[in-house]
Amino acid sequence: MSTTVTTKEPASGIRRAAAGGQAGDSVFSALSLGAGVLILAVLAAVAVFLSLQALPTFRAPAEEISGGAGFFSYIWPLVIGTVVAALIALVIATPLGILVALYISHYAPARIAKPVGYIIDLLAAIPSVVYGAWGTTVLASSLVPFYTWAAEHLGFIPIFSGPASQTGKTMFTAGIVLAIMVLPIITAMSREIFIQTPKLHEEAALALGATRWEMIRMTVLPFARPGIISSVMLALGRALGETMAVALVLSSGPLMASLIQSGNQTIAAEIALNFPEAYGLRLSELIAAGLILFLITLVVNMIARAIIARYKEFSGAN
């Protein structure tokens, strides 16, 4: 008898808790559903509001657009500049990022690997404006001798044609700063995937007499290839949209082939530099440029995510 009395107390407590809301249940589920839908709505709103504000640009007569030859001829040098800056960044950051990831996952002693991972994360945590400030004061001036040398000896290649910039504030410098900024993305993601390589594959390769590099080439890299590709795509998305590094480092100008003269411009930096003073049609023009940038990065990111999603289905990881 006494046992039923003692169990009655908690039971009624629970019942009270349970009774605390049929209504609560549906409110809570509606709230969380609403939050999820809100996110989709925000993403749609980004596209819609940018399009609405960009509309005057697409309607305006060609001669009223900056440059006086229509929106297309205004935007395409910027698109090319954006792509070139991002490509320089990727060409430098991809091999470096993968090698650093290999260092953390397969080369460094376990005791060192963790702190090194933190250090790479630190690299990602530094605000972009600080990289920009560093790039424009330290990196740009220290690259001038290299640019001068390249203009003298490699000047026959269009991208190194002189005269080299004497401030170093060039597309190439901007690309290097971007590379430093996207390196942690590639490293962090590749490392995650390198670590997931099945241990049995690695040990089988080593048991067959493979050297460490042969083991990595035959087991780790094939396993991680989709992951590496998607990490590079994500880094590309970041590099395309990065603003401050380019706005501070590059002394901009019209599109040109040489990467070691001042010149060229990216969409993001063009917006950041001109938006604060813009009004009327110019405002709409810059928003239209932003819309183009949004679409480019959207496509790049969707491809990256699609690769990751497909890869997840096959790997059984996670």
Binding site: L240, T243, T297, M302
Partner: peptide, 15 residues
Amino acid sequence: VDVMTGIPSIVAGLF
């Protein structure tokens, strides 16, 4: 949400 991670910060500002 994954795609949103990749929105350039300046585009968010423009939005």
